[in-house]
Amino acid sequence: MLEIKNLHVEVGGQKILKGLNLNINDGEVHAIMGPNGAGKSTLSYAICGKPGYEITEGSVTFKGKNFLELEASERAGEGVFLGFQYPVEIPGVSNINFLRAAINSVRKYRNEGELAAGDFLKLIRSKAAELEMDPEMLKRAVNVGFSGGEKKRNEMVQMSMLDPIFAVLDETDSGLDIDALRIVADGINRMRCPEKSILVITHYQRLLDYVVPDFVHVLANGKIVKSGDKSLAIRLEKEGYAGLGIEENVA
């Protein structure tokens, strides 16, 4: 599904990713862990085409397509979703209008007609209910005044509405209370199927108890320095990065 080869990324003139390789096959769930500032969010932005993240070397291939040629919106159209570490507040745009615009944009990209208003409302109500989001929040401006946990839950509502085939979830578990973590984890697990893949970025083993990954990677100093199965995350939790011989970022 996703193939990243020798990826080098610069941000603001700083070299952040320095030759990263990652292969994710259909149906797999991968987890990336790593010290603060290692470049995890940078990787998620590079995959999803954020301006300012300059790819100086390497390739990103999604379903056989050279992804680096596509605009951010086209990547979404291809079925990629990014759950933001810090979801953005957009004053004046209601959640519901935003979602309608998003869903119809993606459908347009796929040459599908607009979703009928009634079907859209039915869909959004059921998704909000699944993630136990108060429907009143759909009327509010996107993320404006949302608590940290509410923002993350909102990301999940967006994901389930857009129904991607590949999702990068950047610390979607941070800031969630215990119940919310379960609800969000259930949301992620609902997406799991042989045709879809997920990359979760997290600092905590706890999420991985609910969303059991097929592979765990450690990203440090701009590269994947260690890969393993779910037991790697458990060892990390116990021994820390230093205990595994991984240096903290030397800036």
Binding site: C48, G49, K50, P51, E71, A72, S73, E74, R75, A76, G77, F81, L82, F84, P87, V88, E89, I90, P91, G92, V93, N97, F98, A101, A102, I103, S105, V106, Y109, A141, V142, Q158, L162
Partner: peptide, 28 residues
Amino acid sequence: ADALYYLKSRGLDQNAATALLVEAFVSE
């Protein structure tokens, strides 16, 4: 720029994202 990218990451192209943000700006 962050709002614009957020919208694009959800599938809105440059024009649609701009329109939504300008509409919000004016509708106030």
